[in-house]
Amino acid sequence: MTAVVHANGLSKRYGTTAALDSVNLNIEPGRIVGLVGPNGAGKTTALKAILGLTEFDGELSVLGLDPRTHRYQLMQQVCFIADVAVLPRWLRVSEAVDFVAGVHPRFSREKCQALLARTKLKPTQRVRELSKGMIVQLHLALVMAIDAKLLVLDEPTLGLDILYRKEFYQNLLNDYFDEQKTIIVTTHQIEEVEHILTDLLFIRDGKIVLDATMDQVGERFAEVMVNPDKADAARALKPIYERQIFGKSIFLFDGIDRARLAELGELHKPSVADLFVATMKGTYS
């Protein structure tokens, strides 16, 4: 099976700063990939390159196509939700459905209408009359009714309340995703997506600093809660991060033998958020 996204030495410069610094990537079908990084790390630039919305240097193929020259063909197989506010404000709900049904060969009107029936959206409403959450419901109904191979989500739930956010990912997982599809998602609310991800990509200063499946993350990284008397022993093993809580130290280790760590204290699976903080420390200093 060929990779959905394959990048080799992908680079993009804005003036003197490198938004992407020779990135190598391989995303297989049937994965849900979280692309996570601090603000300005190059997440959006990477997604834009994948979607053919920006020029770049290096090699990049999406579903076997060059997104710079084949954006039109690519968009038959690829969908994206850029962020919550991109549906045109003058568009009516019914017009949106008619238009996408008219131009997209892989759109199912029946499925879209079934999805819309679950919401409070009315066909005559214009986007400008909708709340942010309802706009996302509309956009998601449109996108989920498209049988695409790759779905790209760039901060899809930004500014939504927790009810809409939960619903968004639940719908995506229950009614959309299957082993034929691939989803790439960027978000700052990692804790909300980590249970649905199969793969994790950390990006920092235009470089991929972590590229692993969630299983590998679980094997590689371990968090240990250590009493003060063993703290120095723990530090000797070169933890990648250390924080204090209730007088104990919590250390995060990368690739250290579990048996040795268990001697120091209680072992935990680290959360992606903690892993992120550990990996990105010093980004803004």
Binding site: M75, Q76, A82, V86, P88, R89, V103, H104
Partner: peptide, 15 residues
């Protein structure tokens, strides 16, 4: 300006 170009460009429409 209102970024809705990103919606239009997410559909199979050539420039």
């Amino acid at each position: 300006r209102d970024r809705s170009v990103l919606f239009w460009k997410s559909l199979p429409l050539s420039d």
